[in-house]
Design a protein around this nucleic acid. Structure first.
Length: 203
DNA sequence: CACATGATCGCCT
DNA sequence: GGCGATCATGTGG
C-alpha cells in the first residue's frame, strides 16, 4: 500500500489561515457538516501544501442511520475510526477502485461522521479534479493508509478556515444510498451551490 | 470457506 | 438513463 502524491495543481499556501480546535468537531454532526463548507482540506507533501475548499459534504448519523457504516452498532476494524472522538479521519475503499474520506464528529463512542464529496481547488485548477468523493481522494492522494489519523495534532492532513462570508448551503438527500430505507430521504447533503466543483447538481 | 454487495466513476446509448 | 469494472469487507455456514 503506497502513499500517493497529491495532484500538483492543488498546491496552495495555508499561511494566514487558522485551524479549528478539537471542540469544533465534538458538536452536532449536521452543524459541523454545514460549517465545513468554510474550510480547506490540506495535505502536506514534500514541504508544500495541497488541497481545496470543501464545497460538498454529507452527514452520517451513527447507529440510527441505516446509510452509515456504523448503523446498528456495527463495529469492525474498518469502521473503528468512526468511534473515536471528533477530529479523526475515516477512509474506506469501495467498488473495488475508489476511496472515500470522512471527518469524524461527536465524542468518543458516538460513531458519526461527515463524508467529503467535493473540493474546489485553487484558482486555475479544473473544477472536476476533486469533484466527487472518489476523485477527491485520488486528487489528494488519500487512501486507507490515512484512515484513523488525527487531523488536529501534527498530521500531514489538516483543515484551514478560509476568511470568507459564511456559505448558506443547499440541502438535499444523500447520494447513492437508495438501500437505506427511511434514511435515504433525510436532508443531510450540504453543498455550496455557487461552486462549479459540486459533483451532482440536484434541486 | 464462499459469496453478495457497495457513501463511485467513466463510458455508452 | 444504464451498466461494467473490480475487490475489501461483512456476513453466514
Amino acid at each position: 500500500m503506497k502513499t500517493l502524491r497529491p495532484d500538483p495543481r492543488l498546491e496552495f499556501d495555508p499561511s494566514g489561515m487558522h485551524e479549528p480546535d478539537r471542540e469544533f468537531f465534538l458538536r452536532d454532526t449536521t452543524a459541523v457538516a454545514r460549517e465545513l463548507l468554510q474550510f480547506w482540506l490540506g495535505r502536506r507533501h514534500g514541504g508544500s501544501w495541497y488541497g481545496g475548499r470543501i464545497v460538498e459534504v454529507e452527514a452520517y448519523l451513527g447507529t440510527a442511520d441505516r446509510a452509515a457504516h456504523s448503523w446498528n452498532g456495527r463495529r469492525t476494524p474498518r469502521v473503528e475510526p468512526m468511534y473515536r472522538h471528533g477530529g479523526h479521519l475515516y477512509v474506506y475503499f469501495v467498488y473495488g477502485m475508489h476511496h472515500c474520506a470522512n471527518i469524524v464528529t461527536r465524542e468518543e463512542g458516538n460513531p458519526e461522521a461527515v463524508l467529503l464529496r467535493a473540493l474546489e481547488g485553487p484558482a486555475g485548477s479544473p473544477a472536476e479534479l476533486a469533484s466527487g468523493p472518489g476523485r477527491l481522494c485520488r486528487a489528494m492522494g488519500i487512501t486507507v493508509v490515512h484512515s484513523g489519523i488525527d487531523l488536529i495534532h501534527s498530521s500531514e492532513i489538516r483543515l484551514f478556515r478560509e476568511s470568507r462570508a459564511e456559505v448558506t448551503p443547499a440541502v438535499t438527500p444523500r447520494i447513492g444510498i437508495d438501500y437505506a430505507g427511511e434514511a435515504k430521504d433525510w436532508p443531510l447533503r450540504f453543498f455550496d451551490s455557487a461552486s462549479p466543483a459540486v459533483s451532482v447538481r440536484r434541486s
